Simulated scan of single mutants.
Amino acid sequence: MKRVLSTLTFLMMLTAVSLTAQCCSSAGANKNKSNDTASEAAANISDVKVYYFHFTRRCVTCQSVEKVAQEALTETFGDAVPFQSVNVEKEEAKTLLEKFKVSGQALLVVKGDKVENLTNFAFMNARTNPDKLKNKIAETVKSL
């Protein structure tokens, strides 16, 4: 019985680690799109914001998520969709952390009360398939 219990505990811990430790937190789009395309896209969206929550110390993947997200928004929507990088360790982040119930890294696309969490998708694709992440971000913004 003890062995089964310890095995189950181990599996639960392993699952939790694999879901949250995609990075070392404690340590469609096309660059040649014309301004007209960005303006058209901007006309179809309003009040959408993208937040990237992170820690002070970030690994390459954490940095890539931020970079790719910013590129996706700029390439697809110009300045129409605001992007905010939020350090969760800073006092000024407290209000946003409480509002979105965030305690660690997160990539959120927000419009009003609708919140789309792209965190897992972002960490799986930012370094290995950035275009896939860019497309997902653009699709999510447009869907809101």
Rank of each mutant, 00 (worst) to 15 (best):
N44R: 14
N44Y: 14
V68M: 01
S64D: 09
F83V: 02
V48L: 05
K33M: 14
K31Y: 15
D79T: 09
F77W: 01
A38Q: 15
V68W: 02
D36P: 11
N44W: 13
S34C: 07
K49A: 04
E89W: 04
V50R: 03
C62H: 02
F77M: 02
K49M: 05
K33N: 13
V86E: 00
A41P: 05
T76N: 13
Q63M: 10
A69D: 02
Q84S: 12
S46F: 12
V86F: 04
V81P: 07
E40H: 13
T76V: 03
T61Q: 05
N44V: 12
V68I: 07
Q63S: 10
F55V: 03
D36W: 14
T76C: 09
E89Y: 04
E71R: 11
D36S: 13
R58S: 09
E89Q: 12
S39I: 11
Y52C: 08
F77V: 01
A43Q: 13
F77H: 01
Q63P: 06
E75F: 11
T56I: 07
Q63V: 10
L73Y: 03
D79Q: 13
V60L: 10
D36V: 11
E89V: 04
V65N: 02
K67P: 04
S85K: 05
K90F: 09
V68S: 00
D36C: 10
R57D: 12
F53R: 00
S39T: 14
T76F: 03
N87S: 08
R57M: 11
Y51T: 04
G78A: 05
A69Y: 02
S64F: 07
E75N: 15
D47F: 09
R58C: 13
L73G: 05
V68G: 02
E66S: 08
T74F: 15
A80M: 08
V65L: 00
H54G: 07
